[in-house]
Simulated scan of single mutants.
Amino acid sequence: MKKLNFGLAISALFILVGCGASRDYTPPADASGEQIFSTACTECHKPLSPNVAMILSEKVANKEALIKKFQSGSMRMPAFKNIQGEAADRLADYILTNSQVK
Rank of each mutant, 00 (worst) to 15 (best):
M1F: 07
M1P: 00
M1S: 10
K3V: 12
L4K: 10
F6I: 14
F6S: 13
G7A: 15
G7N: 09
L8W: 10
L8N: 10
A9V: 12
I10G: 05
S11E: 03
S11T: 13
A12D: 00
L13W: 04
L13Q: 07
L13V: 14
F14D: 03
I15W: 11
L16G: 11
V17G: 08
G18C: 09
G18W: 09
C19T: 09
A21R: 13
S22R: 13
R23I: 10
Y25T: 07
Y25I: 10
D30R: 11
D30C: 04
D30Y: 04
D30N: 15
A31I: 08
S32P: 03
S32L: 07
S32D: 03
G33R: 02
E34H: 03
S38T: 14
A40P: 02
A40S: 12
T42V: 13
T42C: 04
T42N: 05
E43S: 13
E43A: 14
C44G: 04
C44Y: 05
H45P: 02
H45V: 05
H45S: 09
K46T: 12
P47D: 06
L48P: 00
P50W: 02
N51M: 06
N51E: 12
M54I: 08
M54K: 13
M54R: 15
S57C: 02
E58D: 13
K59H: 12
K59C: 02
V60N: 02
A61L: 07
E64Y: 01
E64D: 15
L66F: 06
K68N: 10
K69C: 03
K69T: 11
K69V: 04
K69R: 15
K69E: 07
K69H: 13
K69F: 10
S72Q: 15
G73L: 03
M75P: 00
R76S: 14
M77V: 09
M77C: 08
M77G: 07
A79W: 01
A79G: 10
N82V: 06
N82D: 14
I83P: 01
G85L: 12
E86W: 04
E86Y: 07
A88R: 02
A88E: 01
R90C: 04
R90Q: 11
L91T: 03
A92Y: 00
D93V: 09
D93R: 10
D93K: 10
D93Q: 13
Y94V: 13
I95E: 00
N98A: 07
N98Y: 02
S99A: 15
K102N: 14
